[in-house]
Nucleic acid binder design. Structure first.
Lengths: 341, 341
DNA sequence: CAATTTGTGTCTACCATTCGTGATGTCGCA
DNA sequence: TGCGACATCACGAATGGTAGACACAAATTG
């Protein structure tokens, strides 16, 4: 592996000159330029990215840590959409993505701080789903830029984040069902320890109470974001007889698929008898029968915006922070219809 | 940001002593050890990963470049499975994954060589789907380890790769259909420029000819791995009337979903009248109706093996190469059944 | 001819790690 | 007291590309 010095010797110039030729932002005569480039080519010289990073204090990578042992992050297309969104914005600007794994949610924090502290990346996207106030506070204390995907657990002015307004859009999804004449509506949430679960539940509750509909605690289940979770929610709710819901809202598509499966087994027609709404608009929504009405959460777009804020903070070295909401969209398909009389 | 020197001054020791305390593999008295650690904590010192990498000539990252503009890599769960597999093996060994984007298949090669040459990662996983002999030859000339996902376009002894035996398992999938009594079987391949497409087609052809079944060129279509591609294949093949296939093999699940959709629209019963087999066993196979019989390709396992070979090459600094096949499995579900009389 | 521009050399700091060399101090033993 | 064995740690160099400051010669301009 040849270094910048080898090239300098072969071209008969000083190492600085070689560096200047490669960086391009200095006045170098045409002649020495070709001499240097010739030497570099003959020696198969490529600048060492690590040495370069050490000098310019920039790695041109942005990091993300995911709990890779939970397949949920992959099944529901959350992670791939995020990476695609990050790449969409970061790639044209010369950045790559560093993906760190983690064993658990607490390890996720350890890994995040390791990357932040060791400066292995110029900035990092942090999943805020389970963060507490202390952790976010500690992140603010250090000086590598970061952006939260989701809101922090407290109201900070000096923390950047990108989020979907989960409460508002769930409210609207429930309102859509109410508009179709449904009165008994089920809420199937994910992991109750995760922030998004309670956010959506608040949207559900406020839509129901605003429409002055009765609310039954047995219409609320937590399916932990899994297919099975949706399936078992149906088992329990269909036992309610006359009080069984005529519509289900599920906080992700996987649970909605489980709900569809449960209803199909029981011979319940969708959407003739019961309506179902999922969340995320994963690819499979178009392949199931009936096609699934779903609340699209633009994770790729969220990630792209996070990358934008991050790269801004990195390159302008400003400490300005920004908070952004992205718009969700209710994708109306075949799984929802008017409430039967 | 404090450096190892600041800590050394505060603790009253030499910088190399601080380094030895942190690396742990040197005899340091209990007393200086605590003095150093105290000073480090007070100064909030974290070793700079870049400087460390420069010195030890190791970044503890393995890279992968994906053409992020083609959503196919994400839709069919190829990329997420690969990343998960890489992390499963690499994370416990202290490695992270560097993901590079690329604009096109030729840019993919540029990006790959950039990472290899600049030593931004210790090793790299390369998708071999469209590689030519020259490119692989050039990769062999440099000295950063790499492993191909898929076989190289020529028979090299000194190139490591991990692959599924696509020809063999497609052969077996077709044989399964033949065993069910099917005689007119369609092959819906992906992009014909991609190696896997012709590999599977060979498996299809040899199963057909071994069973001495007639082969019709109109039973072969290229759906370019998209849902639409499968859908249009059905449109064309159902026009064949008596010669229309009674079974479809699709080289990925997405095309199989398109086939299911096309058949459903035409009122063709699956599996009563026509059988369908997909490939990859993506999550949606369980959510469609009927559930999809599919040839599972263990991408996560392939990636984990690639990571294993890579880390072996990195840490042992050996130039030994290995070639590995992974086993596929035909997941028999509801979309296949006996050929109608 | 003086003044300016252009092109290049020289040097330093960035920063953690490793290795060899050597200095210092302590302990045990004779 | 003297000596060897050992533990502990200081010291300096090398790793490697970059940026900025400065010097200086040659070429160009006014």
């Amino acid at each position: 592996m040849s270094t910048i010095r080898d090239v300098a010797i072969k071209a008969g110039v000083h190492p600085s000159t070689v560096s200047r030729v490669f960086s391009g932002n200095a006045k170098i005569s045409q002649e020495t330029q070709t001499r240097v480039l010739d030497a570099a080519q003959k020696l198969d010289f490529h600048p060492n990215a690590i040495a370069r990073s050490l000098s310019v204090k920039r790695t041109c990578t942005i990091a993300i840590v995911i709990p890779h042992i939970y397949s949920g992050y992959f099944d529901d297309e959350f992670f791939p959409q995020v990476v695609q969104g990050l790449l969409n914005f970061a790639y044209p600007r010369g950045y790559r993505i560093l993906v760190g794994g983690s064993n658990s949610h607490s390890d996720e924090i350890v890994q995040t701080f390791d990357i932040l502290g060791s400066r292995q990346a110029d900035g990092i996207v942090v999943l805020s789903n389970r963060l507490d106030v202390d952790t976010v506070g500690a992140m603010r204390e250090q000086d590598t830029p970061f952006v939260l995907l989701g809101r922090p657990p407290a109201h900070y002015h000096d923390v950047s984040w990108v989020d979907a307004d989960n409460e508002r859009y769930t409210y609207e999804a429930i309102n859509y069902l109410i508009g179709l004449g449904h009165k008994r509506i089920a809420y199937v949430g994910g992991d109750p320890e995760v922030a998004v679960t309670s956010e959506r539940q608040r949207g559900y509750a406020s839509a129901m109470s605003q429409a002055q509909l009765p609310q039954n605690p047995r219409w609320i289940e937590y399916g932990y974001f899994s297919d099975e979770g949706g399936y078992y929610a149906v088992q329990r709710m269909t036992e309610l007889g006359d009080e069984a819901p005529t519509a289900y809202y599920a906080a992700n598509d996987l649970m909605a698929f489980g709900i569809l499966r449960g209803l199909r087994e029981k011979g319940v027609g969708v959407p003739e008898q019961v309506s179902v709404i999922g969340t995320n608009d994963s690819g499979a929504c178009l392949h199931v029968t009936p096609t699934l009405t779903t609340l699209r959460v633009p994770y790729a777009q969220m990630a792209a915006q996070a990358a934008e804020l991050l790269i801004q903070a990195i390159e302008e070295e400003s400490t300005a922070c920004a908070q952004r909401f992205v718009d969700c969209e209710l994708m109306i398909r075949e799984s929802t219809g008017p409430c039967p009389a």
